[in-house]
Write a protein that binds this DNA or RNA. Sequence first.
DNA 1: AAAGATTCTGGAAGATATTGCAAGAAATTT
DNA 2: AAATTTCTTGCAATATCTTCCAGAATCTTT
Lengths: 310, 310
Amino acid sequence: MTAEERQHRIEAHVQKVEFASLEELSRQVGASVSTIRRDLNILEAAGTIRRTHGGARLTIPKTDEFAFSARDAHQLDEKEAIGKLCASLIQPNQTVVLDGGTTVFHVAKHLQEKRLQIVTNSLPVANLFASAQHAEVILTGGVIYPRLGVLVGPLAVKTFKEIHADVAILSAGGITLDGLTNSHALLIDIQRAMMDSAGRVVFCLDHTKWDRKSVAFLCDLDGLDAIVTDSAAPPAVVESFRDRGLEVLVVGEPVIDRKPDLGMGKSPSLLEAAVPVYEETPPRVSATGPIAAEPAYVESPTTVNVATWD
Amino acid sequence: MTAEERQHRIEAHVQKVEFASLEELSRQVGASVSTIRRDLNILEAAGTIRRTHGGARLTIPKTDEFAFSARDAHQLDEKEAIGKLCASLIQPNQTVVLDGGTTVFHVAKHLQEKRLQIVTNSLPVANLFASAQHAEVILTGGVIYPRLGVLVGPLAVKTFKEIHADVAILSAGGITLDGLTNSHALLIDIQRAMMDSAGRVVFCLDHTKWDRKSVAFLCDLDGLDAIVTDSAAPPAVVESFRDRGLEVLVVGEPVIDRKPDLGMGKSPSLLEAAVPVYEETPPRVSATGPIAAEPAYVESPTTVNVATWD
DNA sequence: AAAGATTCTGGAAGATATTGCAAGAAATTT
DNA sequence: AAATTTCTTGCAATATCTTCCAGAATCTTT
C-alpha cells in the first residue's frame, strides 16, 4: 500500500466516523501509530483533517457535531423522525428555506437526494449540501454566529427579502397559544424574513417544545401553516392547536387520520396542495447544468421558477 | 506488446483502482518494475497520472488553483510557506477579504489566532473560522459552486460592493505582464468586486503561476499592489514585474533586500504602510477608521456584538 | 540480408525517503 | 502533584527512487 493510499483511507475513515483515535486508525489501515501520526500531520497541513489529542477529527464537521452537538444530543431519535416526516412533504423542484435549528438540520439530511433549491443561513446545512449533485444551495450572507454556526445580521435578512420560496422550514424554542418563541433574539429577525419570503411556513418542534415559552417572541400562530412534531407531543395540547386552525403532523399518526383543516387555513393543506401544483413545475436544469443556470435567479424574479404556489 | 500499449494499460488500471503500487502494475502488465517506473514518468509528464512513493494515483482534480479538493497536495509546501508569509503581513484588527483559492486557504490557516474581521466567499475558509474565538467572519451570500466550495453569483458580488476592507488576499491561475488570469470565469466578477472593495490587493501565487496564462482575463497589473510567491519563482521574471512597479515578496528572501517601489505604486509599500497606518486605526467599534467605516453592512447594533460573544 | 546504430528493457548500486521503535518532553487526567 | 496518556524527536531498519550499465529488441544503413 502506498502512502497516499493509506492517507486516503485514513481520511475516508475519519470522514465516516467524525473522530478517530490513533489506535483505531492504526488498526484500520494496518500501519504503526507513528506512521498514522505523520499521515495526520500531512493531512492536517492539507486542511482535510484536524488533529486532536489522541486522534483526529473532521475539519468540516459533517453533521451537527458542528457547534450545537450538545443541544442536539437530546431528543435525537425524535428529531430524526420529525426530519424524515417533514422531508417527505417536500416535492421535487421546490424552493425550500431552511433555518439553522438542529431539528431542521435533520430535515436537511433527508432532503439530500431530492432535486431542490435550498436557501439557508445555516453553515452545517450548507456543508451538508456542498458536494450534493441534485440540490442547488443558496447561502445567505452574514456574520457567522460561532456557537450555532448560523449566519446572522442584516446581510442575511436582506437575502430573504429578495427571494421567494415555496416552503420555509423552521424551528423554535417553544410554542404556546400565544405564539412562537425562540431563544436567540438575533435569530428572530431572520426567521421573520424567512417566513415572509415563503408561501408556506412549517415549524418542526419536538415534544419538549409544546406549551413552553422561550425568551424572545417570534410570531403569533397566524404566522405559520403547519407544525411537524413527534409522537410524544401531548395529545390534548396538540388538539388545542388544531382547534385554532393549525395543521399539526405527528410522527407515526397515519396521514388519513389527520384533519386537513381546509376551511380554516388561509391556504390549502400542505399535503393536498403540494402534489398537483408542483408536479407540473418544469425542471430547473438547463443543458449546461446548475452553474450556468445560476447567475440570474437570485436577482431577477423572472427566472425564479419558485412562484408556483401563489 | 508495445510500449504505448503497456502504458495505456497502466493508465486504465490506475483509473480503475485509483491507487496502484509498482508491483501491482508490474504483475498487471507483465513488465519489470523498472519499466513501470519509466512508464509512470512518461504518463506523469503527459499529465494523466501522478506518481507517488511506491506507486501511482490518478490525477483527481485538474490541478488548477480553484479546484478545492482538500486532497490537493500540489505545491503544498510552497503554498504553506506563502500562506505563512502572507499571513504575517496582516495586522491585528484589520478587515481582510479572502477568496476561495487553495493558496489563500493556507493563508487563512495562519490567520486563525489573530484578531481580525474576515470577509470571504469560501465555505472551507468559513468552516475554518467557524469556531474561532478571535476572528469575526462575514460570509457573502451566493450559490454554492459544488466543486470549489465557493459562493458565486450576484449575491456574492453585491456583498463586496457594500463593504470596505483593508486588504484583499486573492489567488489566480496565472500572471504575465499583460495581467492576471483565472481558470473559472465565474470567479472573475467576484474577484473584481473583492479588489474594488479593498484598500490593498495582494495576490498569492506559487511559482507555477508565473508567466502563465489561464483562460479568463481578470485584470491588468495596475489592479494589484503586491504579490507573495515562493522561492522557486523564476528570479528574472520576478524582476521584470518589480520593474513594472509591483511589490513582490518571495518566501525566504529577507525583507530588507526588497525594493519598496514607493515611487511607482499608487500607494505605499505594503510592509511600510501596514504598521504606521493600521496601528493607529482605532478599534473597530468606533466610527472613524477604515474598518469602522464598514458598518454599512452591519447596520444593526446587535450584530456588532457578535465580536464580543464568547 | 547483415552490420551498425538506436532504443528499450531489466537489473544492480548508491542515494533518498519512509517506517517503526524508543526515550524524553508535553499535555491530560486523577 | 503524581500518574497516565499522548506527542515529539532521533535513530536504525526497511523500502523505494534514481542513476547507470549491459543485454535484447528494433530500426537504419549499406
